[in-house]
Nucleic acid binder design. Structure first.
Lengths: 110, 110
DNA sequence: CTTAGATACATAATTCACTTATGTATTAGA
DNA sequence: TCTAATACATAAGTGAATTATGTATCTAAG
């Protein structure tokens, strides 16, 4: 697991981008996909995940659809058009940040 | 200026690495060097900088030397041997984190 | 058949690294 | 002479996270 401090500020970007790449997904599914993509390094906690999803929904970046699987309920999230713009913005911010960090730290990212 | 959220957790790493690359430096000088290295993108605030330096010193990662320039006082910081180990650790943590992020976000860092 | 672990959602209390605000003092240039 | 830059420092407040807690369903093992 990563030094969790570094993750701060990256959660929204991760959620938006993974939703963009995978289409509609539900919360638990997002935690599993991120875990797999990161080779167990990024383990999203529910206390961070759900509030973040709710916030993005409230801001109109995500839309939801509740689906019943038998007695179990799943809440699927997907990007709205505004969400789609936001992903691009957030991802390029992060890339820019990473590039800045590599010049400040004087390291190569092969 | 970067979305400041992303900077969270990177301050120690930046300070340690810049000190490693530049030898002994004082606080204000660090802010200026980081500003230059980042092309004005990372502007360290004093409220973050000084507590971080004090903490690293208290933990034995940095040693200080107070130098008087006329009436003005400068406090120079440099790495201790333990500090030198810590830099390596922190930098590789950050590189690892960046690599993880690029696989999760499915982006190339040219 | 029952129970532990995975699945699935959610929120409240707390933490802590940061920002913002404030304070002091020196030096250089317009 | 007064503003901006240099140079240090700390206190109050913020906010995104962690940690803790709660509810409930499904599945596989014993």
């Amino acid at each position: 697991m990563h030094s969790p401090e570094l993750l701060k500020g990256t959660l929204q970007t991760i959620l938006l981008k993974v939703l963009k790449d995978n289409g509609r997904m539900y919360g638990y599914e997002l935690t599993q996909r991120v875990k797999a993509l990161s080779e167990e390094r990024i383990l999203l906690t529910e206390g961070a995940l759900y509030p973040a999803l709710h916030k993005l929904e409230a801001e109109g970046m995500l839309k939801t659809e509740v689906v019943s699987m038998g007695k179990r309920v799943r809440k699927y999230y997907s990007l709205t058009p505004e969400g789609r713009s936001l992903v691009k913005e957030r991802v390029s911010e992060l890339i820019d940040f990473i590039k800045t960090m590599s010049s400040v730290l004087n390291v190569e990212l092969a």
